[in-house]
């Protein structure tokens, strides 16, 4: 995002207490795994959390950086495996996705929105102008004391005309469909990749809803 005035502080720029060097060294040997969300409902991120105690079995091989587990806002270094939920619906999504692609060895689309656009892509059937008019100008729940306005500010990302699946913007290596996919399905994919097995989602666990 192009900020003109530096009147903000980002959490990852704040000074941090130093980590134990031994812990850091051990962590650096592991595969770094991250997950971000673009235009989605964060349901897939909750499924990522649903891996629960299964994840303990992998913790000697992986470390989880930016994700719902850690609340880290930036990938501290290049990740081996990156999961993403949500489709591309605005300029900020594109910027985040391209940066993430450049910093992940393997990128995995998680959930209906990432795989084909999902619920946000329902607006692809309506011109963007009509969509904004319905939401902000003609909406029965808009504040009546104010003149109807479509929000516009340089800090608000511009919407793309249509919602796109991630693989139409950058190269995606694997896809986990579902709305949301089960935590165990995400775990299976992660476990397979960490152990060098081929990606597969067999029929009995595949879900599109």
């Amino acid at each position: 995002m192009n900020h003109h005035a530096k009147d903000y502080i980002l959490s990852h720029d704040l000074p941090r207490s130093a980590m134990d060097p031994a812990v850091m060294a051990k962590r650096d040997e592991k595969l770094h795994v991250a997950m971000i969300g673009l235009c989605g409902c964060w349901g897939c991120t909750l499924s990522f959390l649903d891996m629960d105690e299964n994840l303990l079995r992998l913790l000697d091989r992986i470390t989880i950086t930016r994700s719902s587990f850690t609340d880290v806002k930036r990938i501290p270094r290049r990740a081996a495996i990156g999961f993403i939920e949500g489709g591309v619906a605005n300029e900020e999504n594109i910027e985040t996705l391209v940066h993430y692609r450049e910093n992940c060895d393997v990128l995995i689309s998680v959930g209906a929105c990432a795989v084909w656009g999902g619920v946000p892509a329902m607006r692809n059937l309506v011109p963007l102008e009509d969509c904004l008019r319905e939401a902000y100008v003609d909406s029965p729940t808009r504040p009546l004391q104010q003149p109807p306005t479509i929000p516009y500010h340089e800090d608000i990302p511009k919407l793309t005309t249509k919602v796109y699946p991630l693989h139409e913007v950058v190269k995606i290596d694997y896809f986990i469909p579902g709305c949301p996919p089960d935590g165990q399905t995400i775990f299976k994919v992660l476990d397979d990749l960490v152990h060098g097995r081929d990606f597969s989602i067999p029929a009995h666990i595949n879900r599109f809803d």
Partner: peptide, 11 residues
Amino acid sequence: EMVVSRFPYRF
């Protein structure tokens, strides 16, 4: 074992 369509989604 389809996970995604190889063709562009037309909407």
